[in-house]
Design a protein around this nucleic acid. Structure first.
Lengths: 139, 139
DNA sequence: AGCGACTTTGACAACCATTATCAATAACGG
DNA sequence: CCGTTATTGATAATGGTTGTCAAAGTCGCT
């Protein structure tokens, strides 16, 4: 059985307040900054639980870090993520869902799960920050 | 300028011979098994170079490991990966490309890079692997 | 071929996110 | 209120990846 501790509530609410996707480390840091003595391991555990229960989405950043976000809508959706400021937009992708399922089926694959996320620079960051050398032409 | 060393060639050809996606560690291990005294760091560097030059595709496994594969076609494509045996199929996704670009643009995002991969069970593993516990001799 | 400048290599240490450990603590049912 | 039992958290361990730097190799040039 799951017990209701202030730590889990803290993680839950901190996750709800953060705008985009957050890493466990970041979440732990901000909780600490807010004065909470919560432990790092606990944050990891709470996030993993939330993800399992379906109350949080999780995805891997391009660097391989696990990112979490409060799952707003029960509907299945994907994300458009600014790789500079972290802002995320939830996007519907019905067509793509179908494409994924159809493609899997056409090749005899079953139980398809897809990873479909788009990283880019949001409007604000685009105008603000042509900072690094041009990103390599995406393959 | 890039120099042409036997180490890079070894990595290149080893990558070309491997069927599906391979991790740097695995590739290093198999090179070592084949008698090559190549160093681990070198394998990482060679793979990173190959990925940058566009001669290899890279993606992150669900566990966050970086996986590489020789990029057969110069065309941009995505992958359908069996999460049981690792077999990969290259799939075209023009529609999805457009969708990603359009979606990014619609929200003011620029320089979109997308992560679109479908994991499933291939036909072989599907039939072989309804690995439900075999009913033991009921006493 | 020989030479010199400049890469590349590789053993090893450093890093960093994540997970396991385990005694102490706190939550819940009764 | 009490006992059971999940949970916490400081710390160690893990494991993939990257940095370090002297030694060795590669290439352009003559």
């Amino acid at each position: 059985m799951k017990r209701n501790t202030w730590q889990r509530q803290a993680v839950r609410s901190a996750l709800g307040e953060s705008a985009g996707f957050v890493s466990a480390q970041e979440l732990h840091a901000s909780l600490r900054d807010a004065g909470s003595p919560i432990g790092l391991a606990t944050v990891y555990r709470a996030l993993a639980d939330l993800a399992v229960e379906g109350d949080a989405d999780s995805l891997q950043s391009v660097e391989g870090e696990s990112l979490y976000r409060a799952c707003a809508s029960p509907r299945h959706h994907h994300h458009l993520i600014c790789r500079s400021c972290g802002t995320t937009v939830e996007v519907e992708a019905d067509d793509v869902e179908e494409w994924a399922a159809a493609t899997a089926a056409r090749h005899g694959f079953t139980e398809p799960r897809h990873v479909i996320d788009v990283f880019g620079l949001c409007a604000a960051c685009t105008s603000a920050g042509p900072r690094v050398a041009a990103s390599p032409p995406s393959p």
